[in-house]
Amino acid sequence: MNNLVIKNTVLFVVLVLVQVLILNNINLFQYLNPYIYIVFVIFYPLRKEKGSFLFLSFLLGLAIDFFSNSGGINAAATLFIAYIRLSLLSKILNKTDFDFQTFNIRSISLGKSFSFILILTFIHHLILFGLEYFSFNSIETIFTKTLLSTLFTTATIFIVIILFTKKN
């Protein structure tokens, strides 16, 4: 338990720093950035009690907002995907009861974990860019940015998962 707290605290801090100090400055093709910090939502252990998880996700988004002067858009988007995580997972895996203690993103098949991450990332980015532009005039920009960034983020998240987690 204690080990888990330390691990997630370190993950939280590292993700914030990596995101704001390195990844926000990548600017691929001049405007694409991967938002890797949402792996927190993917990695955080599944529990029946999800109050602390929701609160931590909110805080993570808010921390990113503090650094990038973006109001509360990251907080809103991250909180939303944190809230739908469990129901989305049970939809994708087609079951309602989980082995909460041992569940791990590497323990499900590659295709299923891919669609899980892709959908979460897409929803997160859509909320993020929707709130950032906040106008129907720029709906085209919102969708292009969402789609391209989703591809970029998903690819980077997969690299992170392969590099930093052990296969069961």
Binding site: F55, L62, G71, A75, A76, F80, L131
Partner: peptide, 15 residues
């Protein structure tokens, strides 16, 4: 979830 989302949206609108 609703409360936190409202807080986030409040910060967004304020910004």
């Amino acid at each position: 979830f609703l409360i936190l989302e409202f807080v986030a949206l409040f910060f967004t609108i304020q910004s």
